[in-house]
Design a protein around this nucleic acid. Structure first.
Length: 434
RNA sequence: GUGGCCUUAGCUCAACCGGCAGAGCAGCGGAUUGUGGUUCCGCAGGUUAUGGGUUCGACCCCCAUAGGCCACCCCA
């Protein structure tokens, strides 16, 4: 019925939901800072070639989900909204010569990503992601550190439990031979492949590994596994990642069929799911190593690893797990008055109190005092500052909305009085920290 | 992108077989014109998603479009 509405696959984040997202953003940024990741910000859009080359031409993300911007003329550069953060960050790493910075360069970014997908619950065309990247360190310890950071985020966010799926998908030294072997295996069982899978065999054989089709699951159980075909270097790296994870107490589940949708991943790959939830569009995070990406985007050969998580989906998972949504802190006091002409005084007193650092709401409307107090109580305010007849004598009534008591306080001493009253008030109350 | 289900007030939902569109919640106002969350009363809120069609008559049947959801796909 409204004339205009939010575009398909996008939504307006109204105050309650936006507050929840803000809390997660704060949590994520504080956490990243604690681990030594520095904030970075790259554009919402890039030359589409950045994604095509970085993510891979034959990936779903590039082939059908890239949000292409309409060029203004034929010769114009082709732009695309970022579908994921890593390619843009690596582009910035190369552009700004960050290989001359102390390595590894550890950066973090929080913001919107865009994919032209068919929307569904938890799958949006614009979604929020928190991301960390460590570029320039080839060692397995960084892999473990980043996965541990991920695990801590979910725990701190209040998710009762998550499952971390871990795999190694090899590198240029061992994966090609494995892909050949796997392709040959599927060819030998061509008759058992569903038509859809058969069509994908030539283009992306690894994709068949994580198929949910029952026949494929059975077939994949006897298919050659990448973890048995890793070269010595990759196998040693993978073993070391697991040793480090064990050392920091991170639980994970080996999933040899885990392949990721972006071509740039090498060696370590992982995905995170809420406890007890399988498949579907329920992944709440994922990441991995991308030792060839910097070079792919024009830099010197440089290793890297990153992790991204979907804040929308974490919010969804928190709701499903029954974790109460956070609410905005209630005002300490609300300034009310019954005389329509005293709005100057209401505003002035509220301004002074705010200047003193107190969260104060002011009733600036015309409704009667009873309604104002009603609204103040519903807002959860502890106190009401009531302007009345004694205003002429520079006094107001300070009313304790929970105790139902009130007394006269001079305007000049109001801020000090409120601070003291708030402190003693909070003493007995277990104020939940957001 | 493929297949399916759904769409009635801001929200959650009613409305017999095709026969005058309703309730709860939320909002606003009132209950001896300066004191609150309960209670009571009232007000407002709708082109029944949109556009066509069938019919004396459509929330109800048919078609299309849009949006949402489920599965696939894919991932966050």
């Amino acid at each position: 019925m409204p004339t205009f509405r939010a575009p398909r696959g996008t939504r307006d984040l109204l105050p309650p939901e936006r507050v929840g997202l803000a809390r997660l953003e704060r949590l994520a940024q504080d956490l990243a800072a604690r681990y030594g990741y520095h904030p970075i910000e790259t554009p919402l859009f890039e030359q589409s070639a950045v994604f095509e080359r970085g993510i891979g031409e034959v990936t779903d993300v590039v082939e059908k989900e890239l949000f292409l911007l309409q060029p203004r003329d034929e010769d114009a550069e082709r732009w695309a909204l970022r579908p994921e953060p890593t390619a843009g960050i690596v582009r910035a790493y190369v552009q700004h010569g960050m290989q001359t910075w102390p390595q590894p360069v550890k950066v973090t970014m929080t913001g919107s990503m865009f994919r032209y997908d068919r929307p569904q619950a938890g799958r949006y065309r614009q979604f929020w992601q928190f991301d960390v990247e460590a570029i320039g360190d080839p060692g397995p310890a960084v892999d473990a550190e980043i996965i541990e950071l991920a695990a801590r985020f979910y725990r701190d966010a209040g998710l009762p439990g998550v499952t971390i799926l871990l795999n190694s998908i090899g590198d240029g030294a061992c994966r090609p031979a494995y892909v050949d072997e796997l392709t040959a295996f599927y060819r030998a069982h061509l008759g058992e492949l569903p038509p859809a899978e058969r069509a994908r065999l030539e283009r992306a054989p690894l994709r068949l590994l994580d198929s949910k089709d029952a026949r494929m699951v059975a077939l994949n159980a006897v298919a050659p596994q990448i973890t048995d075909r890793l070269c010595d270097a990759c196998a040693a790296h993978f073993a070391a990642v697991r040793t480090h994870l064990h050392a920091v107490g991170v639980d994970y589940q080996l999933e040899p069929h885990l392949v990721r949708g972006l071509d740039y991943y090498t060696r370590t790959a992982f995905e995170v799911y809420p406890a007890g939830v399988s498949g579907q569009q329920s992944a709440i995070g994922g990441g991995g190593r991308y030792d060839g990406l910097v070079e792919l985007l024009g830099g010197r050969p440089t290793p890297g690893i990153g992790f991204g998580l979907g804040l929308d989906r974490v919010l969804l998972a928190l709701g499903a797990a029954g974790v109460p949504a956070t609410v905005e802190p209630a005002p300490v006091a609300v300034v009310v008055g019954s005389d329509p002409a005293d709005t100057v005084a209401r505003l002035r007193i509220a301004t002074e109190l705010r200047g003193a650092g107190l969260p104060v709401r002011a009733e600036l409307g015309q409704r009667k005092l009873g309604k104002q107090l009603e609204a103040a109580a519903r807002d959860g305010a502890h106190f009401a500052v009531i302007l009345g007849d004694d205003l002429a004598g520079a006094h107001v009534q300070l009313r304790d909305l929970e105790a139902g008591t009130q007394r006269a306080v001079s305007v000049t001493g109001l801020a000090r009085e409120l601070e003291r009253a708030t402190k003693s008030h909070r003493h007995g109350l277990a104020t939940p920290e957001s």
